[in-house]
Simulated assay, not measured.
Amino acid sequence: MRSKVLQWLRDWEVLINGQDFAKARTLFAEDVVSFGTFSEILTGLADLEARQWRVIWPTIAGFTFDDPKIVISGDTAIVISLWHSQGKTKDGGWYDRRGRCTLVLRQDGEKLLCIHSHLSMEPGIPPLSD
């Protein structure tokens, strides 16, 4: 299962960087619950896409997971990882954007689906640089 989890992460990186919302949806359960950057709790895939992905993804580039740690129990994998990307500044420049995440993935037939996600910025890095 570890190799499937790593592939899931790589696939999601590509979809985030390509802003491919439709394909990204196929990696998540319809009833996913999440914490968001600008929303305390996001309930369901439509909410996650509308209030998190579509707000954040257009403002970043080069999103990559860094050395994920994976704990597997039965048909569930918990992933904790640092990540990095570039964020757009208000004047159109770029700044280094780093953070951490927790993901809970569940085996659903032949595929893994994310049932919980929480991505947050590293302390001290503003969500939007001036």
Rank of each mutant, 00 (worst) to 15 (best):
Pro58Thr: 06
Gly87Ile: 14
Ser81Glu: 09
Val79Asp: 02
Gly44Val: 14
Thr64Ile: 12
Ile41Gln: 14
Arg25Gly: 00
Val71Pro: 02
Gly36Val: 12
His84Ser: 11
Cys114Tyr: 06
Cys114His: 07
Arg10Ser: 04
Ile41Cys: 04
Glu40Leu: 06
Ala50Thr: 15
Ile115Ala: 05
Glu122Thr: 13
Asp31His: 07
Gly87Pro: 13
Gly109Tyr: 06
Val5Leu: 04
His116Thr: 10
Leu103Asn: 07
Asp96Gln: 09
Ser129Ala: 09
Val79Phe: 05
Phe21Asn: 00
Val55Gly: 01
Gly44Thr: 13
Ile56Phe: 06
Leu103His: 12
Met121Gln: 11
Ala77Trp: 15
Ser120Thr: 15
Tyr95Val: 06
Lys23Trp: 01
Val5Pro: 05
Phe28Cys: 04
Glu40Ala: 03
Gly44Arg: 04
Gln107Phe: 00
Val5Thr: 08
His116Ile: 10
Ile70Asp: 02
Leu82Gly: 11
Leu103Thr: 08
Arg106Pro: 01
Phe38Cys: 04
Leu48Ile: 13
Thr43Arg: 12
Glu122Val: 07
Arg97Ala: 03
Gly92Thr: 15
Val79Leu: 01
Phe65Ala: 00
Ala77Asp: 10
Trp94Tyr: 07
Gly62Ile: 15
Glu110His: 08
Leu128His: 12
Ala61Thr: 15
Ser39Thr: 15
Pro126Tyr: 03
Glu110Asn: 06
Ile41Lys: 14
Arg98Val: 13
Ser34Gly: 06
Thr89Asp: 02
Gly62Ser: 12
